[in-house]
Structure formats: structure tokens, C-alpha cells
Design a protein around this nucleic acid. Structure first.
Length: 860
RNA sequence: GCCCAGAUGGCGGAAUGGUAUACGCGCCAGUCUUAGGAACUGGUGGGAGAAAUCCCGUGGAGGUUCGAGUCCUCUUCUGGGCACCA
């Protein structure tokens, strides 16, 4: 070993990457029963032409660190990677250049794998999941088939979001700000036939399952909000002819069933209802308008509403609407008749497509009432509060109870009652007959019972979640395995014909018709198998379908009999840790959970949550904290960073800069810190007492001089392990820095200690650890086949501590004492301290607090 | 508007209710060097002071506590998400 051999990352990194590959260090025996399994999963990337971005780099570094740590701990760790390879960008590129997506995808995947290996990510690439590979999508189609057989798939024509640029339908969940998530074009409304997955069937399970997984709380909350459960009641408002009806003709007879059924979560406010609103699309409107004197006006409004996209309706500043003049509705609770409106702020798709409007207790109704000069009436008032206690329940007369409170509360109550002030919270019910004095929640319960007894309504649960539309009029996706008989009936493509392959003879240019419709190969194949006149489904699947089950494939990716063997499924699933971006808080995670729950219900899986533990990585921003984007020209390429600083430095900096879930500002000036740290680790090799020293886990004759080091090593082993378990990589790295700084101060270090350092470092900076382990310490085996070092709990504790002496909570002195100092002894020491005495200043000591191992606080 | 997350030195950040600012960057001084850089050593929250030392300090205002960056209430600002869901 030359004394002045420099740390040259580019040289050693390439060398060890080759070594690991050749020795198959990252390959695992998936049927090994001798070790406990651990499945750590990354969100697989879309293989774009731009290559891996820094966001991937961060989360894959984190998962790679966990992988290496778990492996050293003796687990059999599955750490797979694949590619979400279907999708629009490849198709758009094909439209532009004429190069087939098959080709570009292949090239991009090779590039991605090269980049991942250059960063030292230890993926087992022998079993990948590549969604555009027929070997993979055969099983996407098979699962679709199972869902189909179980009635979890259906086809319907509906008003859907149409992207004029992509020439395709997209799901509600994929509309961002009313624009296409992928291309940014404004979405239009269009009637398109589409296949749906019945995800709404699983709404309740999708909410409940969240209780059993270790996910960030905000992710769970977001999933729940997305599903949007709301409990309420339906109420039937009987329709009656308007007393102001001017045509003179009698109304067509309205049977008892001729009702407007509204949905509300706030039935406690129903005595304040001053009008009823129907969505323009509500079926009743077409009947009711016939009896209205302003039929033309109504029809015009319906027409307008139809042409508006959902976005326009939502964005409209003013709440528009038209009264159905000639119709009134009777509030079953107080027999009042109120006017009926149609307005597009009411959505046909939610609830019953009709609402009762209570302006004083709902902001939207308030606004609409203002615009149309409708009356307002308040029936819920804030609960009287006295001395912090709710006393509303104890009071017989609500008015009287207010006399005890200040004018503000009194005035507020009056304003609400008169309809001058809005109040949307729960409170106490007034002016509501037999329901007076109840709290909102009690009133809701009693009113629901009242409705159900009289058969005027019932409790129902509503979800915001809608079924998942999966049809796409695109080429580069998984073909939907459906064929149509000449009479137009849909049939599942039988399993023996799977994979139902994507034809190759296709013109990509979008015309609004699915590209597959133009394939002669597909037509020929369909007719040969099924008979003349049969046609194939021309739509392909949403790529979110492909990514909803890929984690089930990894353990057995080459299996052509099953999507995964029963044994491997049982051994490996569910995923222990899943790391990926917070942008998938809604869609991908919800869809993947739906798939697993549906497969569980069918009996294909014996677990019903895919990801036991989930962690998100933050965004990688430029050094000014701005998002990286092509247009800003601030995109950083991982290749350049690896070339400049070395993979180990890039990896370690990624983890050190900030907690995993926080945004990292990529500042090249700061990487020098971890680079210096690695240089220090490198130079420590020249302090080893004897390169050939036998390695043992025992401490070599600890003497007073290295006691501190021994303790520090034990502490570091403990902390780095705990930090990795808890995804606190930043503090793990800083602890290693502290250890290295201490080792540097030693005139010599023993090889055993150095080796421990390397093992702790290996998860973050694998190349330098392997280099020193083999080349300096002379091992002939990879460091990743070793064991995580052990520590002794007793040695992690300091023998002496700095006992903090406080007066009234302020630090006044500090003395070095034994860590196990007793209370009496500590108090005695505190009281004899000159500084403490000075601050006591002869005053009476009221109390002395002692915190073992920490401090004494004297209270005067 | 609603929901979620956050606010700590010049900067990234650390801190089971118990020494606020670990670790790193930057900066200052020194050693070395023809010089620059690199490397190494020491210093580095603000204020007063020759010093000992004292006072103030975790967005703001209150509160709980012997003791609050940490817990509670209100508030301001920033970031992210959702958007008429009755």
C-alpha cells in the first residue's frame, strides 16, 4: 500500500460495480427458508428518454441503504426493480419520430439500468417487471379477466373527461386543475363508452384498511378524503303545483311517489330550508319543466350547463340557476312549501342530484340565496358556553340562557335566527318543533328515525370516490382482453389466448379512434380465433392498471403458469417497506390497494393490504429551492454528479442533506462536506496498527485512552442501526462523521474498529467500504456477505456525565460526576456550588428537582 | 374557501418535556505553501463587558410546568394538496 494513494472514486466504483455484477452479490435465493424474508420496494420508474432524475436517485438511495442494512442483519432481502413502460410519452415520441415505442422503451430501459448501476444500486435485475413485456401484461390481462368474471368490471357510456390533445379519455383522478395531467390541455366533456373497475364497491374496505398499515398520517388522511365518505339522509319533498301558477291548466296528477328526493348531511338544519335545488341533469327536471311557465328559460339553462365542462362549472364565480316556476316542494317536517330551482352548482353525480338549501347554514346556499333574493332562516345557534362547560343541554329556554352571556353572543344568536349571519357549524337546534334544544348530532339522529318511520327518507352513506375508468384510446398500453361477437356482445378472451398481444402494424397518429382499430393483424387474429364478424376491443388500459399489481410479480417474474407461484406469494408478500413520492398519495396507492382487496375478495390473495409500511421521499429542488424543470434549465443529471463527485458522495449527500421526507435542495457546494468525510475515512487506513491484525468482535485491551473511542463505537453501531430502521439517514450519517472525527484524533486505530466503521458506512457508501474492506483489510469476500456489527448496551453509556445545575430552570453550573449519581449526593453537590449559592442569594429553597443522569433544579 | 405539513444561527439541519443550535456548508484566524488551492488546528447565535460573568434568544401572543423548540389555545406567514361532495 502506497502511503499517498489517493481516494479515487471513479476508479474504485466502476471496479466494484463490475465485481458485484460478476459475483452476483445482489442475486438472492427466493426460496431460501433459512433466513427471514424482507421485501423492500421502490416505485418503479417510467423509462423516459431523459433518464433517471434526482428524485429517483434520492428514494432509490434510501431503499438501497435499507436493503444493504437488512442484508447485513441477516435477512433474505428482496429488492427488485422494474419499469412502468407503457404510457403516452413513448407514443408521442413515436408520433413525432416514427420510431416504435418498443424500440425507444428498450433503449431507455438499458440506459436506466446503466444509471442505477453507476449509482451502486443493488437491484436483482434477473427478475424484473416490465409492464410492456407480453410476459408481464399477460397477467395484467388475466387479472382483468378474473375481475370481469366476478362482475367487478363493467362497460358503460358516460360523460367523461376528454383530452382533445391526447385524443383520449382520462379519469377524474387524472384531471389536474381541469387540465390533462400529462399534457396540460384543457379537458372537455364527451360521451364515450368505457370499461370501469368497480372500485366504489371497496370504498369502506379502502377506508378501514388504513388502520392496519404503518403509513404517514397525512397520506392516510388524504386517502380518506379522496374516498370522501359522508353519512347523511335522503328526504322526500313532495311536489305540489305552484299557487302562483298562471296558465290556469290543472297540473298533471302527481301520485304520492312524485317527490324530489334530496341528500343532506345536515338534516338538523331542515327547518331552515327555504328552497330546493336540482342538478340540471336530474331526470325529474325533464318531467317537471313541462308544467312550468318558463319552460324555455329552463331548457336554455340546461343546454348551457350541458356544454360547460365540469371545470367551468366549478370555476364559475357566480352561482347561477333558474326557478322552476310552477313547481313547489313541501318540506315534510313543517309542511312549508318552498320554491324549486335548477342550478349547476349541484352535481348530478353526487348524492341524489338534489339538495335542500339552507342558506344560513351552508355557504353555497347562502351565496345562491343572495343572488336570487331568497329568504334565509337560521335554526342552529352556537351552544351557550359558560366557564368552559357546555350547558346547552341543561337549559329549558334557549332565549333565557343567553341572558347570562355577553351581548356579542346574544347578538350573534339573533342574527343567525333572522338570517343576517351565516353559521355552518354544529350547535343547538331552535325553531324546529319537537326537535328544539337538541344538539345538532342528536337532532340528526332523531330526525333520521322520524323520516324512516314515516317512510319519507332514510339514512345513507355517500362516497366521493367514483368507479375507475380504465379505457384509453391509445396504442402504447395493455390491450383490453375483450372481443365482441357479431351481435356486439362483449366476451372475455379465454386464458389460452393470453397474452392478447398488442399488434405491431399500427399507425400511431391520433384521430380520436383507437389506433388498434386500424390494425389488420388484430382483425385477422380475432377472426381466426373467434370467427368471421368478431371484432376486438380497440382500447388499451390506463397505465395505472399495470402498476397496480407489479409488486406481486417480482418474487416470481419468469413464471408463465401463474402471475406468481402460491409459495412465493406466501413467502414474500405483502411488501414490508415501500418508498416513493408523495405525489402518489392518491391514485397509485389507492388503485394498488383496490387491486389487492379485489384479488383478496376473489380468493386469489390471502392478504388485503399490499404495503405494510410506506415512506415518502421529498422533492429534489435546485439550490434556490425551485422545482427542476426542462423549461427552467435547472435540471440536474445524476450522471454528471456521479462523474464529478463519485457515486458514494452523491448517495451519502442525498441522505445527509435533509430528512428523507423533506425537500432536498441540491447544492453542489455542500457535497464537498460528505466528500471530505469519505476522504477522511479513506485516510484512516494509514493509522491502522497492523493491516494483518486478526479481526475479532472483542475489544482489544481497552485502556483509559481508547475508552472514549470504544464507547463511541458502541453508540454509533446502535444509533446508525436505529436511524436506518426509522428512515433517519441524515442523523445516521452525522453520527458516522462524529466517529470518524474521533478516530482521526487517535494516533493509531485497530483494524477491528476500522472494520466496524466500514460495515456501518457500507449501506450509504458501498464502493469505498468494499474497496477498503478487501484491499486494505485483506478480506477475500464481499463486505456485503458479512454481519452487521454488534454493540454492548453497557458500553453505549458514559461513565461520567456533566450534571447540570439549575436555579429556577436556568443553567447556572455544571459538574462532572458519575453517571449513576444518587439523588441525595447530587442535591448536596448542587447546594455547595458557589455559583448556585450566588443565585440562591440566601433565599428559601422551596423545592429541589432531580432528574437522574441529567440535572438538579433548585426552585426558590 | 377547505384539508395537510411546516416555521430553530449567514445556509442545510440536530435536539425521549431537562445544557438549544449536534453534524455539515460558509465565514474568521493560524500552520504549511513562491503564490493560489488543498490539507490540518482553533474560533464562529445576538447584545453588554478588559475579564469573570450577565442579559436576550427556536415566526408572534397567551397558557400548563420546577423546567417548553417540544404540550394546550389563539394568531401570522410559507409550502403542498383539494376544490361547489349538500
Amino acid at each position: 500500500m502506497e502511503e499517498n494513494a489517493k481516494y479515487n472514486p471513479n476508479e474504485i466504483e466502476a471496479k466494484w460495480q463490475k465485481f458485484w455484477l460478476e459475483k452476483g452479490i445482489s442475486l438472492i435465493d427466493k426460496d431460501d427458508v433459512t433466513k427471514e424474508k424482507f421485501y423492500i420496494l421502490d416505485m418503479f420508474p417510467y423509462p423516459s428518454g431523459a433518464g433517471l432524475h434526482m428524485g429517483h436517485t434520492e428514494s432509490y438511495t434510501a431503499s438501497d441503504a435499507v436493503y444493504r442494512y437488512k442484508k447485513l442483519q441477516g435477512f433474505n432481502v428482496l429488492h427488485p426493480q422494474g419499469f412502468d413502460a407503457f404510457g403516452l410519452p413513448a407514443e408521442n415520441y413515436a408520433i413525432k419520430t416514427g420510431i416504435s415505442p418498443v424500440e425507444t422503451t428498450k433503449i431507455n430501459i438499458i440506459n436506466y439500468i446503466r444509471q442505477m448501476q453507476s449509482l451502486g444500486f443493488a437491484y436483482d435485475f434477473s427478475e424484473q417487471a416490465v409492464t410492456c413485456d407480453p410476459e408481464y401484461y399477460k397477467w395484467t390481462q388475466w387479472i382483468f379477466g378474473e375481475f370481469f368474471k366476478q362482475g367487478l368490471v363493467y362497460k358503460k357510456t358516460s360523460k367523461t373527461n376528454w383530452c382533445p390533445s391526447c385524443q383520449t379519455v382520462i379519469a377524474n383522478e387524472q384531471v389536474v386543475d381541469g387540465k390533462c395531467e400529462r399534457c396540460g390541455t384543457e379537458i372537455e366533456q364527451k360521451e364515450v363508452p368505457s370499461w370501469f373497475f368497480k372500485i366504489t364497491d371497496f370504498a369502506e374496505e379502502l377506508i378501514n384498511g388504513l388502520d392496519n398499515v404503518d403509513w404517514p398520517e397525512y397520506t392516510k388522511k388524504n386517502q380518506k378524503n379522496w374516498i370522501g365518505k359522508s353519512e347523511g339522509v335522503t328526504v322526500k319533498f313532495q311536489i305540489m303545483p305552484s299557487p302562483v301558477r298562471s296558465t290556469g291548466h290543472p297540473l298533471p296528477s302527481t301520485g304520492e311517489d312524485e317527490c324530489i328526493e334530496v341528500f343532506t348531511t345536515r338534516v338538523d338544519t331542515i327547518f331552515g330550508c327555504t328552497y330546493v335545488v336540482l342538478a340540471p341533469e336530474n331526470e325529474l327536471v325533464s318531467v317537471l319543466k313541462e308544467q312550468c311557465e318558463n319552460k324555455d328559460e329552463i331548457e336554455k339553462y340546461i343546454e348551457q350547463a350541458k356544454n360547460k365542462t365540469e371545470l367551468n362549472r366549478m370555476e364559475a364565480k357566480e352561482k347561477t340557476g333558474v326557478e322552476l316556476k310552477g313547481v313547489r316542494a313541501i318540506n315534510p317536517f313543517n309542511d312549508e312549501n318552498v320554491p324549486v330551482y335548477i342550478a349547476d352548482y349541484v352535481l348530478a353525480s353526487y348524492g341524489t342530484g338534489a339538495v335542500m338549501a339552507v342558506p344560513v347554514h351552508d355557504e353555497r346556499d347562502w351565496e345562491f340565496a343572495d343572488n336570487h333574493n331568497l329568504p334565509k332562516k337560521g335554526v342552529i345557534i352556537p351552544r351557550p358556553i359558560k366557564s368552559g362547560l357546555l350547558i346547552g343541554d341543561e337549559i329549558d329556554n334557549v332565549d333565557e340562557s343567553y341572558e347570562h352571556f355577553d351581548n356579542y353572543a346574544n347578538k350573534k344568536k339573533d342574527n343567525i335566527r333572522k338570517g343576517i349571519e351565516i353559521f355552518v357549524e354544529d350547535g343547538t337546534v331552535i325553531d324546529s318543533g319537537e326537535f328544539n334544544k337538541l344538539n345538532s348530532d342528536e337532532a340528526r339522529e332523531k330526525m333520521a328515525v322520524w323520516l324512516e318511520e314515516k317512510k319519507l327518507g332514510k339514512k345513507i352513506v355517500n362516497y366521493r370516490l367514483r368507479d375507475w375508468s380504465i379505457s384509453r384510446q391509445r396504442y402504447w398500453g395493455c390491450p383490453i382482453p375483450i372481443v365482441y361477437s357479431p351481435d356486439g356482445e362483449a366476451h372475455l378472451v379465454p386464458e389460452e389466448h393470453l397474452p392478447w398481444k398488442l399488434p405491431m402494424d399500427v399507425d400511431f397518429v391520433p384521430t380520436g379512434i383507437s389506433p388498434l382499430a386500424k390494425s389488420a393483424e388484430l382483425k385477422k387474429r380475432t377472426e381466426e380465433i373467434f370467427g368471421a364478424g368478431w371484432t376486438a376491443e380497440y382500447d388499451t388500459m390506463d397505465t395505472f392498471v399495470d402498476s397496480s399489481w407489479y409488486f406481486l410479480r417480482y418474487p416470481d417474474a419468469h413464471n408463465d403458469q401463474e402471475f406468481c407461484s402460491k409459495e412465493r406469494l406466501k413467502k414474500w408478500l405483502p411488501v414490508d417497506v415501500y418508498i416513493g413520492g408523495a405525489e402518489h398519495t392518491y391514485m397509485h396507492l389507492l388503485f394498488a390497494r383496490f387491486f389487492v382487496k379485489a384479488m383478496h375478495r376473489i380468493g386469489i390473495l390471502d392478504f388485503d393490504e399490499p404495503f405494510l409500511k410506506l415512506r415518502h421521499q421529498g422533492m429534489v429542488l435546485d439550490k434556490e429551492g425551485k422545482k427542476m424543470s426542462k423549461s427552467k434549465g435547472n435540471v440536474i443529471n445524476p450522471d454528471d454528479m456521479v462523474a464529478k463527485f463519485g457515486a458514494d458522495s452523491v448517495r451519502t449527500y442525498m441522505l445527509f442533506a435533509t430528512p428523507l421526507e423533506d425537500a432536498v435542495m441540491w447544492n453542489e457546494n455542500n457535497i464537498v462536506g460528505v466528500r471530505r468525510f469519505l476522504e477522511k475515512v479513506w485516510k484512516l487506513q494509514y493509522k491502522i496498527t497492523n493491516y494483518k491484525l486478526q479481526i475479532t468482535n472483542k475489544i482489544q485491551n481497552p485502556n483509559d485512552q481508547n475508552k472514549k473511542l470504544v464507547s463511541l463505537i458502541n453508540k454509533t453501531i446502535k444509533k446508525v442501526g436505529e436511524d436506518i430502521e426509522n428512515f433517519r439517514f441524515n442523523t445516521a450519517v452525522s453520527q458516522l462523521m462524529i466517529l470518524v472525527n474521533e478516530m482521526e484524533k487517535q494516533t493509531e486505530i485497530v483494524a477491528a474498529d476500522y472494520e466496524k466503521l466500514l460495515l456501518l458506512l457500507a449501506s450509504f457508501a458501498p464502493h469505498i467500504a468494499e474497496e477498503i474492506f478487501q484491499k486494505v483489510l485483506g478480506h477475500e469476500e464481499s463486505i456485503f456477505l458479512q454481519k452487521w456489527p454488534e454493540f454492548e448496551e453497557a458500553l453505549t453509556k458514559d461513565e461520567t456525565i456533566n450534571l447540570v445545575l439549575q436555579v429556577n430552570g436556568k443553567v447556572r453550573d455544571m459538574v462532572s460526576v458519575g453517571a449513576d449519581i444518587a439523588e441525595e449526593e447530587a442535591k448536596k453537590i448542587a447546594l455547595v456550588s458557589e455559583k448556585i449559592q450566588k443565585h440562591i442569594g440566601g433565599k428559601e429553597v422551596k423545592k429541589i428537582i432531580f432528574v437522574p443522569g441529567k440535572l438538579v433544579n433548585i426552585v426558590i
